[in-house]
């Protein structure tokens, strides 16, 4: 629902180096804390209602003792041709002028068509109003919505941090550059396997890395044009 305007806006993208990712899941907890993602408890988790905007997929290959494992962090791929967008009857999910796949909570009426249509299964539905046993609610991030029952949610590339980074650049009277915007997962990554930046800027680290011969995108043949780029394992 954006109007076409001439844009020198950044296009946000992420690069994840699978050779460095160890599967330590620091990103998963960092994301939960930063984005007010509730824990649903053991009973609801057993029904598959646990919410993780970012998760570590793990693939075993071979058998004991010649077993190999691959870890892969999976989050919303912020596809340029996002399959979730056209199926939303109320335009709650749409593409922003910065190339983000946005989810507007107060538009969402919870049809869950988007989740159904997402090949990466990164969209999560709130079956209940979230609950934090007091005083755990004191730790909620005041910069992020607390989603209510009946809405879809997913990774926003830490939109609150993007806004902060853009504001900082504006205060200093310049364009955004590497380091201005660091999502919570990238910030805490223990092996520095994750990079985030403006892929429209040819000088940025993500631009440079996206041209690596190790670079690939997830389920590329679907034509979704993801903006998360994976660097395959070395060796």
């Amino acid at each position: 629902m954006t109007e076409e305007r001439k844009s020198n806006k950044p296009r946000w993208a992420m690069v994840i180096d699978l050779d460095r990712c160890t599967g330590c899941e620091a990103c998963v907890v960092a994301c939960r804390v930063e984005n007010n993602i509730p824990t649903v408890g053991p009973e609801e988790a057993a029904k598959g209602r646990s919410i993780n905007w970012i998760r570590i997929e793990r693939y075993f290959e071979g058998e004991f003792p010649d077993l190999k494992v691959k870890f892969m962090p999976v989050l919303c791929q912020h596809c340029e041709e996002a399959p979730c967008e056209p199926v939303c009857p109320v335009y709650a999910t749409y593409h922003t002028d910065e190339g983000l796949n946005a989810q507007v909570y107060n538009r969402c009426v919870g049809t869950r068509y988007c989740a159904n249509n997402c090949p990466y299964t990164v969209r999560f539905f709130n079956f209940f109003d979230p609950k934090w046993d007091a005083p755990l609610d004191k730790a909620l991030n005041p910069e992020v919505s607390v989603r209510t029952r009946g809405v879809m949610e997913k990774c926003t590339f830490c939109i609150q941090r993007i806004r902060k980074g853009e504001e900082k650049a504006k205060d200093e009277g310049r364009e955004v550059r590497d380091g201005d915007v660091v999502p919570a997962c990238v910030q805490t990554c223990t092996t520095k396997a994750m990079y985030f930046g403006n892929i429209a800027d040819p000088e940025s680290e993500v631009s440079r890395l996206s041209k690596s011969n190790r670079a690939s995108r997830l389920l590329e043949d679907l034509g979704t044009k993801p903006k998360v780029i994976y660097l395959n394992k070395g060796d």
């Binding site: 629902m1 954006t2 749409y94 922003t96 002028d97 910065e98 909570y105 910069e143 919505s145 609150q160």
Partner: peptide, 12 residues
Amino acid sequence: RSVSIDCYVCHR
């Protein structure tokens, strides 16, 4: 004022 009216500017 030609300021962005993208939803994500205010809603997140």
